[in-house]
């Protein structure tokens, strides 16, 4: 459907927004069901929340670094949109660069600095704690995530996202590299500070990095978070789920279906799991996930060397 070209950018951003809205709506529907209220109305909830935040006054705390916090807030959706550029939808991405995976990784790391700037700039102990939690979380998930991306790159012999999707042929990487896939999903939730990895904005720290955000600032921050989550799910499709491969339906439909399924998994995880404390996640990450992903990369490298991949 999309074959490169600048005109595809607004189209894809809108599509991303629709997916993000759907994610938020599904999440609030699950929440309403758990709270014993009608889940039908929940599909309008994100829209109503947008209306509320559009009207809200912006919060300015004395002694806060307003510029820093606002740059951080805006950075989040911008980074998600930039990450979108290398996402193949149809046959090619908007800019099908040869190092697409690295580009995606670089954009995703922006959420570190974005969340940290928002938390630090708010001049609040809660914000500071949330910001520092996110840095610790970043240190925990980033290295295993990079090893799983390396496994994918080695397996495909390329860092170009479209080529990686094409290289999977009949055996998707989700089958041949399950550990890497799992790690990518974990890291997707982690850099969108979502569900079990939402300690940076957790309720035990009164909203953490987002404590002092109100009105349109909070709106941009939250939109950025949903866009991040959506773009990460969409990226998992070419990296692990064979891109647009699938019977009967056209390629773009398969991409959509796979993305939506992954988003559903993430929403499910949010409602089924409590937040994992940073302390525990760091331990898990360095003691278990890191060796496992290293092993995964090693196995893939050996397979490539002996010509099985």
């Amino acid at each position: 459907m999309v074959d490169g070209g600048l005109w595809a950018i607004p189209l894809l951003v809108v599509l991303l927004g629709v997916l993000g809205y759907g994610t938020a709506a599904y999440s609030s529907a699950l929440r309403s069901r758990g709270a014993g209220t009608s889940w039908v109305g929940a599909f309008g909830t994100p829209g109503r929340e947008v209306a509320r935040l559009l009207l809200g006054q912006r919060n300015i705390v004395p002694g806060s670094d307003v510029l820093l916090a606002r740059i951080g807030t805006a950075l989040l959706p911008l980074a998600a949109i930039m990450a979108l550029l290398v996402l193949p939808f149809g046959t090619r991405a908007i800019t099908d660069m040869s190092v697409g995976v690295v580009w995606f990784n670089a954009m995703e790391v922006f959420s570190w600095v974005a969340v940290w700037m928002v938390g630090w700039g708010s001049n609040s102990a809660w914000g500071l704690i949330g910001a520092n939690r996110f840095l610790a979380q970043g240190l925990a998930y980033e290295l295993p995530q990079m090893f799983s991306l390396i496994a994918v790159g080695v397996g495909a012999g390329s860092l170009n996202v479209s080529e990686i999707a094409a290289a999977q042929g009949t055996l998707w990487y989700v089958v041949s590299m399950p550990v890497a896939f799992l790690m990518f999903l974990i890291s997707a939730m982690a850099f969108a500070f979502w569900g079990p990895f939402s300690q940076a904005v957790a309720s035990d720290a009164a909203g953490g990095a987002a404590t002092q955000l109100s009105g349109v600032d909070r709106l941009v921050f939250l939109v950025g978070r949903y866009l991040m989550l959506t773009v990460a799910s969409a990226m998992a499709v070419p990296l692990f789920l064979g891109g647009d491969a699938g019977p009967l339906l056209p390629g773009w439909a398969w991409i959509l279906i796979k993305t939506v399924l992954l988003l559903a998994v993430m929403v499910w995880a949010r409602h089924r799991l409590p937040t994992i404390r940073i302390e525990r996640f760091t331990e898990l990450s360095w003691v278990i996930l890191m060796p496992l992903t290293l092993l995964q990369a090693l196995v893939v490298s050996i397979f490539v060397l002996i010509g099985w991949m």
Partner: peptide, 12 residues
């Protein structure tokens, strides 16, 4: 449960 960051379980 709310403090542990499990909002939907807390609501139930």
């Amino acid at each position: 449960l709310a403090v542990a960051g499990w909002r939907s379980a807390a609501l139930t």
